[in-house]
């Protein structure tokens, strides 16, 4: 067996994998934030709570209705997405004419309500969620042990991210979306129902968060607070990447997850703050963000 700078490869690759998994969640969540921000011009503070709701809906499906993981992977984003559509229709859309900061405050309030309600019902100790039997176990790759479920999380996130990129950048629907982002009034004048597009976009962004939540459920326990701290890290990811580009959000998310994982091996004390430190450096060197367009 070889060693790298005194670190056994098992530990190194284990953390790299864990970093990639965190990176998957950063990528999906920052992607959702970027899509929502593009069209609604608000930062969705409820995103972390919606990620948590995704995990909880999967847990409820399994424990109350006996619906398995695979069905929950479709159902949870759908349910949370519908809740998101209602939130957009009845609350967020009424603030469209105001300063965007009110959208931030509204979604922050909603996040408090959702997290508080789940904490009241389920406590904050966390509930276990079994890895689906098809993905239990793992493979020995020689240099490391690869649990099947973790490999699946990385692959599934990559697929969903690239699919989102494809829809937005390469299809007609995506073209409408980009047009509405660029100039909503003109797009509406061409006969496209922009308010509907806005609602569906919010629902889609929220569904992405819920999808990430279901993926996360078997890895981290299902916990009402699971989204609260994560969303702040994702905010830093978004500041680093800039919200101008879909691919930028994906690359930044995975990249920062990796960096965080490697930091955990070489200098564990800094692993919680490394993303914030990178944010500071990026702000000093390239204030608009790595993929951002200068305002």
């Amino acid at each position: 067996m070889f060693e790298l700078l005194g670190i056994p490869p098992q530990a190194l690759f284990g953390q790299v994998l864990l970093g990639l998994i965190n990176g998957s969640f950063y990528a999906i969540l920052s992607l959702g934030l970027a899509v929502i921000f593009g069209l609604l011009n608000i930062i969705n503070f409820t995103h972390g709570a919606q990620y948590m709701m995704g995990a909880f809906v999967a847990w409820m499906c399994l424990n109350y209705l006996g619906i398995n993981y695979w069905a929950a992977l479709l159902l949870a984003p759908l349910i949370v997405g519908i809740v998101g559509v209602l939130i957009e229709r009845f609350l967020i859309s009424r603030l469209a004419h105001l300063d965007h900061l009110y959208g931030l405050l509204l979604t922050f309030g909603l996040a408090l309500i959702i997290q508080g309600l789940f904490r009241n019902n389920y406590g904050s100790s966390g509930l276990p969620y079994q890895i689906p039997p098809q993905l239990a176990g793992g493979h020995n790759l020689g240099f490391m042990f690869l649990p099947n479920y973790r490999a699946w999380v990385v692959i599934a996130s990559l697929v969903i991210c690239l699919a989102t990129w494809f829809v937005i950048e390469k299809t007609r629907l995506g073209a409408y979306l980009r047009a509405a982002t660029e100039n909503p009034t003109l797009t509406q004048a061409f006969g496209i129902n922009v308010p509907l597009l806005v609602t569906l976009t919010y629902g889609f962004g929220v569904a992405l968060a819920a999808f990430a939540g279901v993926l996360a459920a078997p890895i981290y326990s299902v916990n009402p607070n699971m989204g609260a701290d994560l969303i702040i890290v994702v905010f830093a990811v978004v500041v680093i990447g800039g919200m101008g580009s879909i691919m930028g959000a994906i690359v930044t998310g995975f990249g920062l997850g990796l960096i965080e994982g490697v930091t955990k091996v070489f200098y564990p004390e800094a692993s919680a703050t490394v993303i914030f430190i990178i944010m500071v450096l990026v702000l000093l060197v390239k204030p608009a963000g790595l993929f951002g367009r200068p305002a």
């Binding site: 609350l91 922050f108 909603l110 996040a111 408090l112």
Partner: peptide, 21 residues
């Protein structure tokens, strides 16, 4: 009331932003 304080604060947030800016 424990965690209900968080819920109440969230509700006040939403009410303030929607109706009582």
């Amino acid at each position: 009331l424990g965690a209900w304080v968080t819920v109440v604060q969230g509700v006040i947030f939403v009410i303030c932003v929607m109706l009582f800016r």
